[in-house]
Nucleic acid binder design. Structure first.
Length: 882
RNA sequence: GGGAGCAUAGCUCAGCUGGUAGAGCGCAUGCCUUACACGCAUGAUGUCACAGGUUCGAGCCCUGUUGUUCCCACCA
């Protein structure tokens, strides 16, 4: 049975091998089993050509921990992996590659050839992130891996598009949209990030037509848009301007005559109370324009340059044009003044450039009817957020959501399945490519050039990956709806919200019942990890240095759900040490192991009952914490149990048996050690899968893999509250002796005989061997309370006295005592006991407490009072003897 | 302009339904005690941001204040 393990745990040697063994044995495969309950998680699909970062690592670790836990609990646990085609991100990468290596643009290649390049790119790099996830120990069912542009998922996308279109929930229209002139595409509201930037507020004079020397002064942060001004607005109740409403003014530089209108939108207090209206380039102006029939004149092109027809400004970039226009306004005396002004600028979440609002023909999803159901499922508790405050974030967004712009002027993605007829102008929207116009049967139809927003396909992920829209899909029937969705709070709007309304709309139910939200992993200074800052920490590097288990433990413990965490490499070191601790505890057991079967012995010693009782409670608590998604708390409890209870105490307590002469005692110690370790490994496995599997394989076991073992359950027969207490009185005495020896600087090598005077003779007799090993005792004599001499007598006999609640312990070390120091220490101890006792007395004398507090709390305080009184008495006696 | 989070030991953070404040790292002292120096033992350090309130009892619940971070929102 004996198996040699290296002295220190070497994760690198273990992880790859263990993972391969799991994979080859099919441990990750989820089978549809009518006898089991399903438990499903779909992985947030990372960008197919992306690289694993710390955020992924945390996300995946949480999911893997949950799925392993449920799998061990006997669920048919399915974790669906996959990747996202990531429209803009991927297309930009390939375009960049094309530019750098061949000096070409995508237009040089043409749509078809370019898409071939992207697929090549995807095939080249698509496996990378999957391999990286495997390094994290992810127990996904890889055979079920999906890609958002797979045939099946594309069919789902198309099905949804057609269905929404037919219900009138998808439409095409000319609206003002967020446009990125750098990515040259429309964006959805969610893809715009607002940033506070310092800017200027320019005051410009617009002369009033027919009233020489009269003019209005408008204030603007974007003077270049004046080329597209088609009106000026004032507040209807603004007396300053009442008489000019209805008149027109002359647009400087352009010479266009534009109306002055009155609209509630205008804030009288801001600037001059006059606002220039550029309906084609400002969402508010657009709205005002609708109300007053203002013309929409687009002056900025898709690439951010000024349109033709504006003389020297045409062709200039919008910010170059701004400079030129300002210079001209100034030269011609139209610029009245310039103020500094802080304002909120929309930027593209991909490239960071300023978004240009402009009017464009785009496809939209009508949100209001969809949002209704998505709100209801949360309101009715069919969908819960953990922590629940994120439900509010979600609800708030959903209640105020605008129509979703889903068309993107890209090539990489799901092309919009709509064909426009050149003859009748109507759209034909169909699941299979049409050959003629559905309205006039003309063959002269052509498909829309645009593709769909990437999030349109990810919104279907929980069901499209399971075979939907095929209602006969067995996976869909069995595993859907899924259970928990794990993701960061940063994509609640992008993804979670859209999955929920999509699930509700297309499958009639919320795609999952719980959303577990985690925070961001930041660097050690609290900054977001980012490429531009170069402060990212590569999870693979950490794995390489400290092992996957240490990384996982770090990511799970020490933070609570929904809160950001700072990543400290030092903590990986701490958890590597923890892994090593377990490793060595196991090594110790294996070195002492003579049995080949691990079962609890008939006869249990005091210390066995103590550890078993503690283990039992651990099992209950950890399970409960896991059920409540308190993974960090669960992890901490296991950590403490293994290090403090099992290693620092229990292993030490068994040594006298293991190294003694009694074969039966030897064996029983092994049995309990082995049993407790095995159970603990099961509890730890979801958190630290590799080391636990590796050790378990070396221990006596039944079954093939730890990861497929049953999760431990609470066993009432292993509750030993009395023994726990007894053991604790011994531990208290051991600690007290250690402390005193420490204070007197007695080296551990100096062993002395101890005399223990106690009312619990049996307990301390049972515990006598522990004092030898744990408290440097050469011999232990246990006597009754009445058999020991008074403090005075014992001191005279050269004894040092140590007092605990349950015992007085004497050590013949009087010559080492510094009497003054000793007196001071005792005085301090007495004062503390007295103080505690006093406050206890106040408490217990308070009728409010005695009458209103729960009986068990009152009882506990009474017991404490008794114990403290006894302790104080003993201490006082000892002090008196000095 | 709305909304949310955070404020606990030198640092980073836990603290589950209110019942005598915890961990890791760091620090101090002593130990290579035949599982582990990636270790063992011992020790020091907290007006739980501030002010009120509820309660027999508050780090935890309520109100307000301050500081800080974030999200949402069409003020040019």
């Amino acid at each position: 049975m004996k198996k040699e393990l290296p002295k220190a745990y070497e994760p690198k040697e273990v992880e790859g091998r263990v993972y391969q063994a799991w994979e080859e044995a099919g441990c990750f495969k989820a089978e549809r089993d009518p006898a089991k309950k399903p438990f499903t998680i779909v992985m947030p699909p990372p960008n197919v050509t992306g690289q694993l970062h710390m955020g992924h690592a945390m996300d995946a670790t949480l999911q893997d921990t949950l799925i392993r836990f449920k799998r061990m609990q006997g669920y048919a646990a399915l974790w669906v992996p996959g990747t996202d085609h990531a429209g803009i991100a991927t297309q930009i990468k390939v375009e960049e590659d094309l530019r750098v290596n061949e000096g070409k643009t995508r237009y040089d290649l043409g749509r078809e050839k370019f898409l071939e390049r992207v697929w090549d790119w995807k095939n080249k790099y698509g496996q990378r992130i999957v391999d990286q996830q495997k390094k994290l120990g992810a127990s996904c069912d890889w055979d079920r891996a999906r890609f958002t542009m797979d045939e099946g998922l594309s069919a789902a996308v198309r099905h949804v598009f057609v269905s929404l279109y037919n219900k009138g929930l998808i439409y095409k229209g000319s609206r003002i949209v967020n446009w990125c002139p750098h990515c040259i595409t429309a964006l959805s509201d969610a893809e715009v990030e607002y940033k506070d930037k310092p800017g200027k507020l320019w005051h410009i004079r617009y002369p009033i037509v027919g009233e020489p020397d009269r003019y209005v002064i408008v204030a603007t942060t974007r003077p270049e848009t004046m080329l597209g001004d088609t009106g000026v607005a004032v507040h209807p109740e603004d007396e300053r301007y009442a008489d000019i409403v209805g008149k027109t003014c002359l647009l400087p530089l352009v010479g266009r005559e534009i109306p002055i209108v009155a609209d509630e939108y205008v804030d009288r207090e801001f600037g001059t109370g006059c606002v220039k209206m550029t309906p084609a380039h400002d969402p508010n102006d657009f709205e005002v324009g609708l109300r007053h029939n203002l013309e929409n004149i687009r002056v900025i092109e898709d690439d951010g340059t000024i349109s033709q027809g504006y003389g020297k400004y045409s062709g200039l970039d919008r910010y170059e044009a701004r400079k030129a226009i300002l210079a001209d306004l100034e030269a011609e005396g139209y610029l009245v003044k310039t103020e500094d002004h802080q304002h909120n600028v929309g930027t593209c979440y991909r490239c960071g450039n300023d978004v240009e609002p402009l009017i464009s023909a785009q496809w939209f999803v009508k949100m209001e009817p969809l949002a209704k159901e998505a709100l209801r499922v949360v309101r009715d508790g069919e969908l819960k957020f953990v922590p629940d405050r994120f439900a509010k974030t979600y609800t708030n967004w959903m209640e105020n959501v605008h129509d979703w712009c889903i068309s993107r002027q890209l090539w990489w993605g799901h092309r919009i399945p709509a064909w426009q007829c050149e003859d009748c102008g109507e759209m034909t929207v169909a699941e299979t490519d049409p050959t003629e116009c559905a309205h006039c049967h003309s063959k002269r139809i052509h498909q829309e050039e645009d593709v769909l927003d990437t999030w349109f396909s990810s919104a279907l992920w929980p069901f499209s990956t399971l075979g939907w829209p095929d209602e006969n899909s067995e996976d869909l029937k069995y595993f859907y709806p899924t259970d928990v969705l794990v993701t960061g709070y940063d994509i609640i709007f992008f993804w979670v919200a859209r999955m929920v309304f999509s699930g509700c709309a297309h499958t009639g139910q919320s795609p999952f019942h719980t959303v577990l939200i985690h925070g961001l992993v930041r660097d050690d200074k609290g900054r977001k990890m980012s490429k531009s800052l170069g402060n990212g920490i590569d999870p693979l590097e950490i794995i390489d240095r400290y092992g996957c288990d240490a990384l996982r433990f770090n990511l799970i413990s020490g933070n609570s759900p929904g809160n950001d965490m700072r990543f400290y490499t030092e903590r990986c070191e701490a958890y590597r040490n923890f892994a090593n601790k377990i490793w060595n505890a196991s090594r110790f057991l294996l070195m002492n192991l003579t049995i080949d079967r691990c079962a609890l012995p008939q006869r249990l010693e005091l210390e066995d009952k103590w550890i078993l009782s503690k283990l039992n409670r651990l099992v209950g608590e950890v399970t409960e914490n896991m059920d409540k998604y308190e993974l960090g708390v669960a992890a901490a409890k296991i950590y403490d149990f293994i290090w403090d209870d099992y290693c620092d105490w229990y292993i030490e307590l068994t040594k006298s048996r293991l190294q003694g002469e009694d074969p039966a005692a030897k064996e029983s110690a092994q049995q309990v050690l082995c049993y407790v370790l095995t159970q603990t490994l099961k509890l730890l496995h979801p958190f630290m899968p590799f080391i636990t599997e590796e050790i378990w394989q070396a221990l006596p076991h039944k079954g093939d893999f730890l990861m497929l073992q049953d999760w431990p359950t609470v066993d009432q027969a292993l509750d030993f509250p009395q023994e726990e207490k007894s053991m604790e009185t011994i531990m208290e005495a051991v600690n007290a002796v250690r402390t005193r020896r420490g204070e007197m600087n007695v080296p551990p090598s100096r062993k002395v005989g101890l005399t223990v005077a106690t009312a619990d003779k049996a307990v301390f007799e049972a515990g006598a061997p522990f004092f030898r090993r744990l408290a440097s005792a050469s011999a232990v004599t246990v006597v009754g309370v009445e058999e020991a001499g008074s403090s005075e007598e014992m001191t005279k006999a050269g004894m040092v006295e140590v007092i605990t609640h349950a015992a007085r312990v004497f050590m013949p070390l009087a010559e080492l005592v510094d009497l003054e120091q000793e007196k001071a220490r005792l005085d301090k101890e007495i004062a503390k006991a007295q103080k505690d006792l006093d406050s206890l007395k106040v408490k217990l004398d308070n009728p409010g407490f005695v009458n209103k507090a729960p009986a068990n709390v009152v009882q506990a305080e009474r017991e404490r009072q008794e114990k403290l009184t006894a302790l104080l008495e003993k201490l006082t006696q000892q002090r008196g003897a000095m």
